[in-house]
Design a protein around this nucleic acid. Sequence first.
DNA 1: GCCCAACCCGACCAATGCTCTAGGATTTAG
DNA 2: CTAAATCCTAGAGCATTGGTCGGGTTGGGC
Lengths: 160, 160
Amino acid sequence: MLFSTKAEYGVRLMVELGRQPDSGPVSLSSVAEAERLPLSYLEHLVAKLRRAGLVTSTRGAHGGYSLAHPATEITMLEVVEALEGQIAPMECFHESPEGKVLCSHESNSDRACATKLLWTRVQSGVNRALLGTTLAELVEFSKPAGERAKGEPAKAAAPA
Amino acid sequence: MLFSTKAEYGVRLMVELGRQPDSGPVSLSSVAEAERLPLSYLEHLVAKLRRAGLVTSTRGAHGGYSLAHPATEITMLEVVEALEGQIAPMECFHESPEGKVLCSHESNSDRACATKLLWTRVQSGVNRALLGTTLAELVEFSKPAGERAKGEPAKAAAPA
DNA sequence: GCCCAACCCGACCAATGCTCTAGGATTTAG
DNA sequence: CTAAATCCTAGAGCATTGGTCGGGTTGGGC
């Protein structure tokens, strides 16, 4: 598996928040029930999303979580990275802050790192998919067919 | 990490085999030394590649492994799948033999599976990258710059 | 002012998979 | 025959995953 359930559950959580745009904060327990996910595990995941600035929390009675930004401005790259950490296809494959690709195996040999070309392409493919998918699209997609295509249509991104 | 070292080591192994096209079988220990990888671990990996029909083995003294097909006809999708198993972005995401996408969460709710759109795009991005990269390209890429671009040039595939 | 819903936090735990080693059995060139 | 090599199975050691548990803290409603 490329990703763990952290990404799966976390994205579902975000979609659930995105479905009620302006009805105040949504409690975690209602999300847990709707998606049939363990509440106490969701607490850990939502904490990561909060620390990443993707959701805001309001404490106390009738509290809960809300999206920190409009769903059209939240890309899946942000969400998945907040949940799973930096996305790299391989352990030895890191991007420095300036965007250069580093590979710890490179010094192993006089030759160029054979796999760098491959992992670069894979990462680029994943990044394009994640960056080109907004939360708004998933919210729209999750609605029953009859309900779709009303309101502002989600920005169409690069097709699958 | 998207992939484990199984893919990394296995691809390196394949590249090493691809560098000596017609000089008989290559022993695992020479590969292990050249790439500084643990020999006994490589044995497990090469067994998977053999069972997948990607390499052939010749036993006994002066034995070793060779590519079962020309490097231009081996895609990284075959190699990585042989090593890591079926590639799916998420546990709940399977492709049936007819190519239909199944999702075990779909029955959880009256709504469409919110994450299916996302994982479909991710998988398609990864597949394109893996399918569009041949072993011959990596072999070429791994040569020192001066040595490249001689012989038949590797088929240029979809750029990163 | 209390209660309770809800967020918050850290410790813990079982299961799984990854990385790698050990030890041997089998095959074959020289 | 012997050395080199593939082949096979059985694990050890470790990190991660996917949770659970118990207890805080906050704040609205009665």
